[in-house]
């Protein structure tokens, strides 16, 4: 697992991280932050590999990673279990 943190108050809800996450572990909140935006949340911190692609694309510098540990489940298995595509269709 990676020690990933999304700053809900910095997030403006653009969703770019949602489509960038290769494992589909990011979704948008159902409540608003103080600025009136839905914000990004990590659904499966345990299995986040810390690839930081979400950090790369985030225009608001709202995502940070502070080191990582080994994931509980092998990466290969995670990607087979849930795909980004499946999760995206849920949003559309």
């Amino acid at each position: 697992m990676a020690n990933i943190k999304i700053d809900a108050e910095r997030c403006k809800g653009c969703c770019l991280c949602v489509s960038e996450c290769p494992r589909g572990f990011i979704r948008m909140s159902e409540i608003f932050n103080k600025s009136g935006n839905l914000f990004a949340e990590v659904t499966d911190i345990e299995n986040c590999t810390g690839c930081a692609l979400c950090c790369q694309i985030c225009p608001d510098m709202a995502i940070e990673i502070e080191g990582k540990k080994k994931p509980n489940v092998p990466v290969k298995e995670i990607s087979q279990r849930r795909t980004n595509k499946e999760l995206m269709t849920k949003f559309e």
Partner: peptide, 10 residues
């Protein structure tokens, strides 16, 4: 102050 999804922040 940039809009959501604006590239300037990156």
């Amino acid at each position: 102050h940039y809009c959501p999804g604006c590239g300037h922040g990156i």
